[in-house]
Design a protein around this nucleic acid. Sequence first.
DNA 1: TGGGTTTTGACAGTTTTTTGACATTGATTT
DNA 2: AAATCAATGTCAAAAAACTGTCAAAACCCA
Lengths: 226, 226
Amino acid sequence: MRVLVIEDNLDIQANIADFLEPDYVLDFAYNGDHGLELALANDYDVIVLDLMLPRRDGIDLCKAYKSQANLQAPILMLTARDTLEDKEVGFAAGADDYLTKPFALRELRIRIDALAKRPKIKNASSLNCGDLTFDPADNVVNLGSSSKPLNNKEGVILRLLMEAAPNAISGETISYRIWGEEPPNSGALRTHIYNLRKILSSLKTRCEIETDRSRGYRLKERSSDE
Amino acid sequence: MRVLVIEDNLDIQANIADFLEPDYVLDFAYNGDHGLELALANDYDVIVLDLMLPRRDGIDLCKAYKSQANLQAPILMLTARDTLEDKEVGFAAGADDYLTKPFALRELRIRIDALAKRPKIKNASSLNCGDLTFDPADNVVNLGSSSKPLNNKEGVILRLLMEAAPNAISGETISYRIWGEEPPNSGALRTHIYNLRKILSSLKTRCEIETDRSRGYRLKERSSDE
DNA sequence: TGGGTTTTGACAGTTTTTTGACATTGATTT
DNA sequence: AAATCAATGTCAAAAAACTGTCAAAACCCA
């Protein structure tokens, strides 16, 4: 069982770790940004989330996670606030359970177990732009009845373009999202864009990748007069 | 939203009805037997279950329901007992949430909403895909009259594939489910998939394991034209 | 010990990704 | 207008990564 604990209080963290550690695989995050990053990057069974966090509010994190994660792990909110209003806000943000401090560790455990039992929600987010739709889950672009599978890099690039559309996204940003700090030292990105363009045009879509010289690329629906 | 309320106290029943009635479709049961009968016969979004019931104990009902229902609605237990032991018993019986009396009706509502959000558990005593069925209990795949026993690892993999179907499941996920943090450092998973494929094809099933390069494997029914 | 289960390692075939060489474009300078 | 330069497009070929295949070794348990 993999559990992510997002909690800045080191004492509570240590308590949770002591109590759950042999049986559960725990990851810890000390602030909201780090927590969201871990949550999105890994496949946890449950996420335990404190509401008061440095860097990013728990409510905010919860909303962001639920909207961005492909596979939503259930979220157990942990907080000192006990009013109904607080709970409503928490649940409205997408929490699946709510435990107020102070709490018994055993109760935390049984609630984690109960949450982990249920299947996770899949985020069926398929993107689109003009007549084109793209499903990042299986890396397939569709136009009406025809479709083409993309490989990994092409998929990431198209997703980024679609998310950014109708704005441009810089080559640097794309590069960073794909390769991180060490991009290939040659124009690999150019080649991928080139291939993506070939695929798009083979689909006869009205969308095309426009280049904004020295600014980046933009996915745009061709206007009828071109 | 359909909610079944199993509760013998008429006052509480009336309160719940008054509070939820316009927005939720409520069914009521006044004793355990009737409750179980309704629960199994209908497809509720949530079941609210009091623990102290005439005719059949709530714990008992919960266990019976979870083992017999094909599509398990989440169960919210409602009780005056507030000790950790009681909660443990409740969750162990299959409850998904636990609220102690007295409670605020608004809290009941938001917890019902939270429970209803999650997908229901399919009762997986035996899984299937296309013409194939697999019983995880004894690790045997069946196709009509013929069957083959699987060994442990193959069984886990086939179960995961069937649970995920028709979606793909990543090699990483499978690997994690089988070996946890330390997978074997060589392509053991590849070998298991290879063997599984041999077994499936020896059964002449129409299901096959498709590979989604760099994304994972998918169990799929072969279309007739291949 | 023996037999099934699981992992290892090697190899081949395929797909994906990167590289590098060259052409083209558009802006800027001379 | 011509020359220049950086950014980008084009493409084929090399490199790397991924996957299938299978026999043999290691492991485990009765």
